[in-house]
Computed example of a mutant assay.
Amino acid sequence: MESNYYTLKRTDNQLILITHLSQLLTYVTGFGGLIVPLIIWVTQKEHVSGMDEHGKSILNFQLSLIVYSLISIPLIFALGLGILLLILVAILAFVMPIVNAIKASNGELPSYPLSINFVS
């Protein structure tokens, strides 16, 4: 007889909250904002209820920020539009993880604006 022990997922809003806030490591290390949430998501998506949805949203957002940053580089030479895009990316990269961490602590699903769906 097969056990249901492995199919049960625990509720851990604190870990999901930490996963969202770990994106802010980019401001400290320059690269941790993608790597740490990726590691948490990959290791915990089967064990924590809601982690799969939150992790995918975080990864899609982080990858989108990278794409927008890369697009902004050549736009810097076009009337400085790239600088405005970089400022917008920096603001979103700082504010949205905090907003979604608060949502996660309340058990709500995340919403990241301008996020391209890379991981579904």
Rank of each mutant, 00 (worst) to 15 (best):
S57I: 05
Q23E: 11
P113K: 12
L17N: 07
V95E: 14
I98S: 14
E2H: 10
I35K: 03
L24E: 02
I71R: 03
L24Q: 06
S49Q: 12
L17C: 15
L85T: 11
S49A: 09
D12N: 15
H20A: 03
H54L: 08
I18C: 03
V99G: 02
V95P: 08
V42P: 05
E108G: 13
G33Y: 00
I116G: 03
Y6C: 10
L88P: 10
Y27D: 05
K56E: 05
V99S: 04
N117F: 06
L15F: 14
L25R: 00
L86I: 05
M1T: 13
I71G: 03
V28P: 07
K103V: 07
V36I: 12
S49H: 09
N4R: 12
Y27F: 13
I76P: 03
L59E: 08
L84C: 04
L25K: 00
A90V: 13
N4K: 13
I71Y: 05
I76G: 05
L75W: 02
K103A: 12
S115T: 12
T7V: 13
I76H: 07
S115L: 01
H47D: 13
P113W: 11
D12A: 15
Q23W: 00
L59C: 08
I76M: 14
S22Y: 00
F31Y: 11
Q14D: 15
T7E: 12
L63H: 04
T43A: 05
K103R: 15
S72D: 09
V28Q: 06
P74S: 13
L34H: 06
V36D: 06
A90G: 09
I71E: 04
P97W: 07
I58W: 00
V89W: 02
V99I: 15
S64D: 09
E53Y: 07
Y27A: 11
V48Q: 02
T29G: 07
N117K: 15
T11L: 14
L21N: 01
P97S: 14
S57P: 02
M51L: 12
M96T: 01
N13L: 15
F77G: 08
L15H: 12
I98D: 15
E2F: 08
S64R: 04
L34T: 05
Y5D: 10
I116V: 12
P110F: 00
L88S: 08
I87P: 09
F31A: 11
I83W: 07
I83H: 02
A78H: 06
S105M: 12
S49W: 02
H20S: 05
S49T: 05
G80I: 03
A104G: 01
A90H: 08
H47P: 01
S69L: 08
S111L: 13
Q14E: 14
I76R: 04
I83L: 09
S49P: 04
N13V: 14
K45N: 02
R10E: 15
G80F: 07
K9I: 05
G33T: 04
L92M: 14
L92W: 06
P74H: 12
E53L: 08
Y112G: 14
E46D: 13
I40R: 02
N117I: 09
H54F: 09
L24V: 06
S69Y: 04
L88D: 10
V36C: 12
E2Y: 08
A101K: 00
I18G: 01
V95Q: 11
V89F: 05
G80Q: 03
V119F: 13
I18N: 01
F61V: 11
I71L: 10
S69I: 03
S115V: 11
Y6A: 13
H54T: 06
N117T: 14
L15P: 00
Y68D: 02
A101N: 02
A101M: 07
